[in-house]
């Protein structure tokens, strides 16, 4: 699974460059997210705009990443597509994550402040 990072002073945006977070990719996703986010304590926004499908294993992996970040560093989700939103809503997980309707895009080189 290809994940790309946009780094800001107090924020990491992780862009999922795969169209699916599924059972075949869930462990890889979890491992890569851990590697990308464990170096410091910046906010983390997961850009899901390119993800057209998630299954319950993928959802479990996103929940696991949130738990790994700890209680003071909630995993924020951005730009859920309809199929992904459906899975979060039906499992009530949409109430667990701060969700941005679209990806907050900071000006080039600027720091992104606030949610």
């Amino acid at each position: 699974m290809l994940l790309e990072c946009s780094d800001y002073r107090d924020l990491i945006v992780v862009h999922v460059r795969d169209t699916r977070i599924d059972a075949a990719g869930a462990i890889d996703f979890k491992d890569q997210m851990r590697a990308l986010t464990q170096a410091d304590n910046r906010r983390v926004i997961l850009d899901l705009s390119g993800v057209g499908f998630i299954d319950s294993s993928g959802l479990g992996a996103v929940v696991a990443v949130r738990k790994a970040l700890g209680p003071d560093r909630p995993l924020e989700l951005a730009a859920l597509t309809p199929a992904v939103e459906k899975v979060f809503r039906l499992t009530r997980m949409e109430s667990v994550f701060p969700i941005h309707a679209s990806l907050p895009v900071p000006a080039a080189g600027a720091a992104l402040h606030g949610a």
């Binding site: 319950s56 929940v63 738990k67 209680p71 039906l90 499992t91």
Partner: peptide
Amino acid sequence: GDLPEGGFGWHL
């Protein structure tokens, strides 16, 4: 704390 990481499949 301990959010469920599974048990969603049959519900969906």
